[in-house]
Design a protein around this nucleic acid. Sequence first.
DNA 1: GTGGTTCAATGGTCCAACCAATTTCTGCAT
DNA 2: ATGCAGAAATTGGTTGGACCATTGAACCAC
Lengths: 243, 243
Amino acid sequence: MTDLLPPIQSTARDDAVLKALAGFVRQEALGPGEKLPTERILAERLKVSRNTVREALTRWEGLGLVERRQGSGTYLKAAVSPDMLHMPLTLAGGNDFAGLMRTLEIRRALEAEAAALCAVRAGKDEIAEIKRKLDIMEEAFHTRAGMSSEEDWEFHQSIYRASGNPLFEQIISAMHELFHRFWEHPLGVRDFGHASFPYHRTIFDCIAAHDPEGARAEALKLIATVEDDLKRGAANLKLSDRR
Amino acid sequence: MTDLLPPIQSTARDDAVLKALAGFVRQEALGPGEKLPTERILAERLKVSRNTVREALTRWEGLGLVERRQGSGTYLKAAVSPDMLHMPLTLAGGNDFAGLMRTLEIRRALEAEAAALCAVRAGKDEIAEIKRKLDIMEEAFHTRAGMSSEEDWEFHQSIYRASGNPLFEQIISAMHELFHRFWEHPLGVRDFGHASFPYHRTIFDCIAAHDPEGARAEALKLIATVEDDLKRGAANLKLSDRR
DNA sequence: GTGGTTCAATGGTCCAACCAATTTCTGCAT
DNA sequence: ATGCAGAAATTGGTTGGACCATTGAACCAC
C-alpha cells in the first residue's frame, strides 16, 4: 500500500536530456558508430546548459553506450532505445581466484539453461549454424593441437542465440568478458580447456536430438572441467607464489 | 581525514579523481551508507574544478555505487575498492508477455543455482536471517490474505546474499526490476503469486537441512507457479482484448 | 513537546570563458 | 592540378564563479 505514491523529483533535468536524446536517436534511426549532435547544439536545442548535457552524456559514457572523442565528437557505441534497463555489474575483490569462480557459477547456471532451451527450440537452421561453428572449432582444435578461445566462444554464442532468449547471450557475454579480464594467460596450466573439448560435441548431439535434459547435463560437465582447470591453476599459483 | 586526497595532474582528470576517491574510501574504511566529502571539499583537496568532481561522481552514480541527495550530501551505496571491475549491461527489454517470460527464464536458472549454493554455504547466521524474512513474509501473507511483493522479495534476496556470490543478487535484481516495470497490476489475475506461497517454506527447509538438490528442485517449482500465473494472465488479457 | 522560521550546508544548474585534441580549410611550392 | 604544411574552425575537456532548490539543524513562539 505504500508502494503507490512514488517520490517525485522536480529536478531531473539530465534524465530528461537522456530521454530526449534516446528519442532523437530512435527518430533518426542512428546506429552504432554514428555521430550524434554536438554538446553545444544539444544544449541550445534542449534549452539546458551545456554542463547539464555533459553530465547526461557522462552517464551514457559510463554505461558504455557512447564514446567521446575530443576534437571530433560523440559517437554511439551501442544501440539505444528509450526503454532500456541498465544493469551495472560490479565485481569487487578484483582479480583473484574467487572472482573467477563467481563468474563461472553464474555461467554454469545460465549455460545449462540455455543449452536445454536450445534443445527444445532450435530449428533446422539454428542447428545447422551450431554444427558449422562446432566443425570450425574442432578443426581449429586438431590443427593447432589445443583449445582455441575464439572458435570455442563462437560455438557457445550460437547456442545462446538459438535459445530464443537474447538475455542469455547478453549476460553470459558479460561474464565471459569479466572472466577474461583477469585471465589473459591461463594461470600456468598449459592445456587449459583441453578437457572440455569432447563435451562440445556431446552438447551438440543432444541439441540436435532435441534432448533438453541431456544438453543440460553435458553443459554442466563442460563447465565442471573448466572449474577443475581453474582450481589446478590456482594450486599452481599458490606453489609458485613462494618464490 | 586531512592529508589524504592529494592533488591531481595531467589529463584524464575525472578518472584520476575516481581513483583517488576509491583510495580515500579504502583508507578511511568507508562502508555503504556513509557520507563522503562534499563536492566542494573534493574539488579543493584534489585541486580540480568542482565540475570535474561532479562528472566523476556522475559516473559512479550511474554505476550505482553512490547516491546523491541534494541538500544533504553524497553517500556510498555499495562497497567500493580501487580494484573493482565494472560491467555495465544494458538490456533492451520488450514490454510484452514474451519479455516477461524471458526474464523468468533467466531467473529460473539463477534462482535454482542460488538456492542450491545457499544450501551448501549458508552458515547459522545466514539461515537465521532467511528464517526471519520467511516469518515476516508468512505473517504478511496471513494477515493480508495474499502474497506481498515486498516481503516476498526480501526473502529471496536474503537467499541470494547467503549464496556467497554477489552476482546472483545483482543480476536477479535486474531481472526483477525488468519484470516489475511492465507488471504494475497483475494482469487481471487476482491471486497472483498465491500458488508460490508454500514453496517458500520448502525452500527454506532444504536450505536449513543443507540439501542443495532439494532446494534447487523447490526453487524450480516456485518459478513454475509464477510462469503458470503469467500464462493465465496472458490468456485473460487475450480474452478481454476483444472488447 | 509541537509546529513554524531562519539559516547554513549541499547538491543541481547555469554561464562565459579558455584549454587540448581533432578535423577542415587554405595557400604556397612543386 | 597536386601535395603538403600551417592556419583556422570545430569539438570535447576544464575552470571559476554565480545562483537556485532542497535538506537538516538550530532556534523560537505557543
